[in-house]
Design a protein around this nucleic acid. Structure first.
Lengths: 193, 193
DNA sequence: TTCATTACTTACCATAGGTCAATTTTTATA
DNA sequence: TATAAAAATTGACCTATGGTAAGTAATGAA
């Protein structure tokens, strides 16, 4: 049993317990790719062709707002990654994706994914489970933005990802939190005191 | 062919074209319920047992924040409705749901839904499509919160739902936009001028 | 219809966060 | 290692939105 199988099982196990052969079948469809630090994986106004799972490293999903990038997701080991909306609708979106570090990802192409969804029962199921877990994640982000201050959101992010400061530029953490880099700097100063 | 079938077809057709019999099979699983204005459908810290589709009327998904309700979704005709996260994990969440008007909904229970997902190929598929479209909706909400001012978000909401003012109390529109009722009142005053 | 309740608005002041410009620190590269 | 570029911080000032309190309008129940 290889590394991919183990990781796939780990990701889906909380949602759906299946015999290891099932995960192995899925893992066999996954290819591996590595990206350099700051490498752009998908450009704005292009169509996403792959669904990624991060094995080692980190990456972000961005969109351009007037004169600066806004980060809508920060992804780490075992996270799904990519412009999932564009992947689903197979149309260009303004979103683009970038690695923060040298990163290794597993991926499945859109056509392989659709084949999996259509031609195997467990494929259809994990497709649903993936979409559902991504929905829950997005709803959590929305609720945080609606109910927490920037300072609370920052502290919560730190508690979930303690090493994020060493791995992701603060300016991207700031835009992810919905504030400017200057505001995040002031919040950080205030917390240290 | 009944009303439910027509509506189900309308909802899913943009994502997945299927013969009418397929939609009819799904529609047969749907029951109908009506709710009074301001009726609570799911209470906080309970587990969602149904997935709803609004046929006529409107309703909101809320959570309590200190001393006031915060609306995280406003739903109208043809929208999915309910605490989808709680439905998926089958655990209580702090979210609760309320009708804004006298509302008629179609619904499927959790057990019927799981049965559909497990025992029919098209069921598995529409389960995935539903989750995917709800993900896209949530991501759009997150992007709006991160990139638009409250005034821009209000104008956009009005453009999408021109009659929302007559159908949903302003205080709930305000919390949905991430601002207070007072701030929304000022924004509205400014726009009229 | 009346009365009580809830929703909405307005005004005033407070504050979180934004903007701009300058400075320091870190990182990348020749 | 030197230098340039990028990232992060800081300060001064500004603006959108919040908090409170009051008033007005709309709604619902008796």
């Amino acid at each position: 049993m290889n590394e991919k199988t183990i990781q796939i099982k780990e990701i889906f196990d909380p949602y759906y317990s299946a015999p290891i052969e099932v995960w192995d079948t899925f893992a066999k469809r996954l290819k591996t790719a590595t990206f350099n630090k700051n490498e752009e994986i998908k450009l704005p106004n292009t169509t996403e062709k792959k669904l990624y799972i991060i094995n080692k490293g980190s990456a972000g999903i961005f969109l351009w707002k007037e004169n600066h990038p806004v980060c809508i997701d920060l992804c780490f080991e075992n996270d799904f990654f990519g412009d999932y909306m564009s992947l689903l609708i197979q149309k260009p979106t303004p979103l683009y994706t970038v690695c923060f570090e040298e990163t290794e990802m597993f991926y499945i192409t859109y056509s392989d994914l659709m084949d999996l969804y259509e031609n195997s029962k467990f494929g259809a199921k994990i497709g649903r489970i993936a979409a559902e877990s991504l929905f829950i994640h997005k709803q959590s982000q929305q609720i945080e933005l609606l109910t927490q201050t920037a300072e609370q959101r920052y502290k919560y992010l730190l508690s979930k990802q303690p090493h994020i400061i060493q791995r992701v530029p603060l300016k991207h953490i700031a835009s992810y939190l919905g504030i400017t880099a200057e505001s995040l700097s002031r919040i950080r100063k205030k917390i240290v005191k």
